[in-house]
Amino acid sequence: MSACPLCASQRLEMVLHVARVPLQIGVALPSHQQALGAATGDVRLAQCRDCGLVVNDGFEAERIRYAPGYDVSLTHSPLYRAYLHQEALALVGEHGVRDRAVVELGCGDGYFLRLLCQLGGNSGDGYDPSLRAAHTEAVGEGRVRLHPQEFRPQPPPKAPGLVVARSILELLPDPAGFLRMINAMADPGRPGTLVYLEVPNADWLLGNRMAWNVHYEHRSYFTADTLRRACAAQGMRVLECAPCYMDGQYLRLVAVAGGAPTSALGPANPHTAQSARDFAGAYREQRSRWTARLSSWAGSGLRTVLWGAGGRGTSFLAAVDPGARLVDFTVDANPARHGAFLPVTGHRVCPPTDLRGVSCDMLVISNATYEREIVAAARDEGFEGETWTL
Rank of each mutant, 00 (worst) to 15 (best):
L169Q: 05
L355M: 15
M181R: 15
S73C: 06
V43D: 00
G299C: 01
L146F: 09
G93V: 09
E137R: 13
E137W: 02
V331N: 06
V27I: 12
T369R: 10
D225S: 14
S275V: 00
I182E: 01
L91Y: 10
D380V: 03
A280P: 01
T314V: 12
A318W: 04
A260R: 14
L390E: 00
L206M: 12
L251Q: 04
C107K: 02
P261C: 00
V43T: 10
D247M: 02
Y250V: 11
L74P: 01
G346Q: 01
H218A: 09
P270D: 07
E94T: 06
R284M: 00
P175F: 04
C7K: 07
V139F: 08
V344A: 04
F279Q: 02
A230P: 10
Q234A: 12
R289S: 06
M1S: 13
A28E: 01
F279R: 00
A35E: 03
N334E: 02
E198G: 06
R356G: 12
E94K: 15
G96H: 06
G207A: 11
A378R: 02
P267W: 00
P352L: 12
V54F: 04
I374D: 02
G26H: 11
V375Q: 08
Q24W: 01
G58V: 03
A176F: 09
G310D: 02
G313Y: 00
V55C: 11
E94F: 02
V144A: 09
L294C: 05
Y66L: 03
V102F: 08
T223G: 12
R114D: 10
Y70L: 02
S275D: 04
C48F: 11
S263D: 15
L84G: 04
R65A: 15
G281W: 10
L146W: 04
E217L: 07
A61D: 14
Y196S: 14
I25S: 09
A39D: 09
E285A: 15
R229Q: 14
F329M: 04
G346H: 03
R145H: 15
T304N: 07
L74V: 03
A264D: 12
P5C: 12
A184L: 07
S296R: 13
A8Q: 15
G346M: 00
T304K: 07
R114A: 15
L113I: 13
L172I: 10
A276L: 14
I182V: 15
V256R: 15
T314L: 06
A211Q: 03
L74N: 14
G69A: 07
N334G: 10
V199D: 00
G41V: 01
G121H: 10
G106E: 04
W212S: 06
P175V: 06
A39C: 07
P267D: 04
L251T: 02
A268G: 09
T272N: 06
E13Q: 14
W212M: 11
G140A: 10
Y370E: 02
D109Q: 13
P261G: 03
A165V: 03
D125C: 12
P156H: 05
M236L: 13
